[in-house]
Design a protein around this nucleic acid. Structure first.
Lengths: 123, 123
DNA sequence: TTGATATTCAATCATATGATTGATTAATGG
DNA sequence: CCATTAATCAATCATATGATTGAATATCAA
């Protein structure tokens, strides 16, 4: 049985997945798209609206995000609804968090974040 | 007062910094370099040794990391000692951690990680 | 059916990236 | 002084990226 979450990029190795995720996150348009998809599903045209670039350019950014496994699209008729797929970002988080020991000054922020998670868990 | 941690790339905007950091992290050679620099300073030639690419190619990867503010080099004589500068990775961590709510299945790992930090803080 | 709408495809372009090889610079050590 | 070593510079190359415009596809609505 194939993993449905990662089905867009079936047999991608861990390193290649990280390459694709970090590369996808290196563009501000794509980060803004992911930020807007946090909590709601949006159409390609809705996602494109705030940007000063062509719809086609946004469509290609979305394709990059799909290939990286960060977005999935459900097409019904002529509209294409985009949904965030945060799973692959976890790999990126694990990678960067290995350096958390160097951010002791900002520790409070991270602690606050954990407490938040912890609350969610207890309920 | 200017942030000393980010002094290597003085007037870079937040978005541009994230662009550069994520782009730097999108290459497996550069990630491996950063992993090896976690805890020790190494020369360019030492960093290059494990890779099957030319020394010049590694040198260029290091330059990318320097431009992203992730590495600083101190040259004494003909050798160039490379030191990790984890500060900018913090920005990347903050960005990706906004999606932590989607990783509830992996929560235990993150909790363990933060408990570890918490221990360090108490001591 | 006709026309508008949503999205993608295709061709093109300028620039960026990652690699190579060869030359250069600069500091060592005998 | 001379040869070696460490690292960077420079030119080149193939490929990737991000953008554009124009065409195509497909759906919906009047």
């Amino acid at each position: 049985m194939i993993d449905e979450q990662a089905a867009t990029v079936p047999d991608m190795q861990q390193a290649d997945r990280l390459n694709a995720v970090f590369a996808a996150l290196s563009d501000p348009v794509r980060r803004a798209i992911l930020e807007r998809l946090d909590g709601e599903e949006l159409l390609v045209s809705e996602l494109a609206e705030p940007f000063d670039i062509s719809l086609q350019a946004v469509s290609k950014h979305i394709q990059v995000l799909v290939r990286a496994g960060l977005i999935s699209q459900e097409r019904t008729g002529r509209i294409s609804r985009c949904r965030l797929d945060a799973g692959p970002i976890y790999d990126a988080a694990v990678w960067v968090n290995r350096y958390s020991k160097y951010w002791q000054a900002q520790f409070e922020t991270l602690a606050a974040w954990l407490e938040d998670l912890d609350e969610t868990k207890k309920r």
